[in-house]
Structures are given as structure tokens and as C-alpha cells.
């Protein structure tokens, strides 16, 4: 079972995502204070951290939903939002940025499915309308994705007719339909009732197993432990600590990581 379109070679040479010294302020509030992060093809990186640590902002910088103030972000050898011409860096037009985003899938906290379209229409919208795929082929692939997430019978349901967990799984299928090189998950389970979190995490775990490159911002420590290749702990706009999940989660070296994890375990 391979949902990920790109077959990834087992020995990755180059990082797919390279972020260097990323700074971002909202007004006088500096949210990101110099983030460095590389993500290898096929790697699953889970970003943890307290609210306000800048982890969601960083994720949104990767596909230029937020423009960064300083530093650089490169995805698949293209600098996001900018272009090098004659040795100088130029800002890209909105249209060119739109083209860059087309290889990156994104899943939102609030799902953001198009409410006036059925699940199937939601999934084929970008493949047909943006990637100019043949409608019939796009529909066939969409049905394949729906059957993998176990929602074939909901193909013609509108988002409001689905439970939160089902909506988020459709949103994941919608992002996969464009055959992305990279998937970004922005707190995908935070808006869900507790009993619906499991089905979404299970879908994401399947994707991780298939070698899709994923960056996941979440509060689900359990998911980080089971599915992540690497856990990145952010606090106060910087990366405090990163490493294998069993190391960072069980034996954190930094006191702030320790404090964060202990609070989580207390909260249950």
C-alpha cells in the first residue's frame, strides 16, 4: 500500500527541506528566533512544544503561508518565496509562489474542507483545477484514497455530514491527492473530540510507514513516540532539543523539555 506518490530511495542524499536561521515577527513580537532544521526525504519529524513556542508559525513558513523576515527555507531545491536571478535574490510573484506550493500538501487544525463540495469534489479540486489532471483519472485516484481511509461510502457526503475525524481523514486524502513531496500537519487532532483522535492518528501512522516525508506539529506525545523518526522540541521561538523520539521523550537533556513532558504526563 503506497499512498505516497514519489518512491523514495532508501539512502537519501540531500535533505528535502532545509531551513536556516529562520526569523519571523508579528509586529514587535518575535515568534521565530533563528530556526535551523533539515528534513530528509522519507523522514517523519514531529515538532513538539508549548503553545506560543512558534511551532505552527514555523510550519506555515515552510509553504510560505507566512513570509519569513530573515533566513532561508529551501524545499526540494527551490527557495520558498524567492528566486535567484543573476546572482541576486528576487521576491517571487503570488502566481510563482502558488506554483511552488503545489508540491507541498497541508492538513489544518480546523480541516478547512470546502463545505459546498462533497468529499470527492474536495479531493479532486486541486488535481483537476490546479494540476490539470484528467477528471476521470483524478476521480479514480480519489476513490482509491477514500477506500484507503475507509470512507468510500462517504464520497458523496458533504463535510457537515461527516464527523470531525472523518472530515480530517478526507482533508488528509485531499492533501495526498496532489501527490505531494512533503506533507505538513498543523495540529491535525487538536480540534477533535478525544474519541475521534485515534482514527486520524492511525491514518497518519500508515502514511509514515509508507515513507512519506512528513512534518507534524502536534501535542500527541504517543504519536511522536510511535511514528516519528525525529522529535524536535521548540520553545520560545528556538529549537531547544531534537533527536530520536526514545531519547528526547524518555531521557530529555534540556530542562525545558523535561518540564514540558512532565506537565503532559501529569495531565494524562
Amino acid at each position: 500500500m503506497t499512498i505516497a506518490a514519489e518512491k523514495i530511495s532508501p539512502v537519501p542524499a540531500e535533505p528535502l527541506v532545509r531551513a536556516r536561521n529562520v526569523h519571523k515577527s508579528f509586529g514587535s513580537n518575535e515568534v521565530l528566533k533563528g530556526i535551523d532544521l533539515d528534513v530528509m526525504p522519507g523522514e517523519v519529524v514531529v515538532i513538539l512544544g508549548p503553545s506560543g513556542s512558534g511551532k505552527s508559525t514555523f510550519l506555515r513558513c515552510i509553504n510560505h503561508l507566512e513570509a519569513i523576515d530573515r533566513g532561508s527555507i529551501v524545499v526540494a531545491d527551490e527557495q520558498i518565496g524567492y528566486e535567484l536571478r543573476n546572482g541576486r535574490l528576487h521576491k517571487l510573484s503570488d502566481r510563482a509562489i502558488a506554483v511552488q506550493r503545489r508540491k507541498i500538501g497541508m492538513v489544518f487544525q480546523q480541516f478547512n474542507l470546502y463545505p459546498h463540495m462533497t468529499a470527492l469534489e474536495n479531493i479532486i479540486e486541486a488535481p483537476v483545477g490546479v494540476h490539470k489532471q484528467n477528471r476521470r483519472e483524478a476521480q479514480a485516484y480519489a476513490m482509491e484514497l477514500l477506500s484507503r481511509i475507509g470512507l468510500t461510502e462517504k464520497a458523496h457526503a458533504y463535510p457537515r455530514q461527516l464527523s470531525g475525524g472523518q472530515q480530517q481523514r478526507v482533508a488528509i486524502a485531499r492533501a495526498l491527492a496532489i501527490k505531494p513531496k512533503l506533507m505538513l500537519f498543523d495540529e491535525p487532532t487538536s480540534a477533535l473530540d478525544p474519541e475521534l483522535v485515534g482514527e486520524v492518528l492511525a491514518t497518519m501512522r500508515d502514511l509514515a510507514d509508507q515513507g512519506l516525508t512528513m512534518i507534524v506539529v502536534t501535542h500527541e506525545i504517543g504519536f511522536a513516540r510511535e511514528a516519528a523518526d525525529r522529535v524536535v522540541f521548540m520553545d520560545g521561538g528556538v529549537v531547544v532539543e531534537q533527536g530520536r523520539p526514545e531519547v528526547v521523550l524518555s531521557n530529555p537533556s534540556h530542562p525545558r523539555t523535561r518540564l514540558f513532558l512532565s506537565r503532559f504526563i501529569q495531565r494524562g
Binding site: 509553504n63 503561508l65 503570488d94 502566481r95 502558488a98 506554483v99 511552488q100 506550493r101 503545489r102 507541498i104 497541508m106 489544518f108 480546523q110 478547512n112 474542507l113 470546502y114 479540486e125 486541486a126 483545477g129 490546479v130 496532489i178
Partner: peptide
């Protein structure tokens, strides 16, 4: 219209007109 909808169309690389 919910801001998230605009964000979704941006994230999927849709042009403004579309």
C-alpha cells in the same frame, strides 16, 4: 467566508482568480 478557506486555497497553490 472563513479565513481558513482562503488559507486552504493558498496552501493548494490555487491562483487568486480560481
Amino acid at each position: 467566508v472563513d479565513k481558513g478557506q482562503v488559507e486552504a486555497t493558498d496552501a493548494f497553490g490555487m491562483t487568486r482568480g480560481r
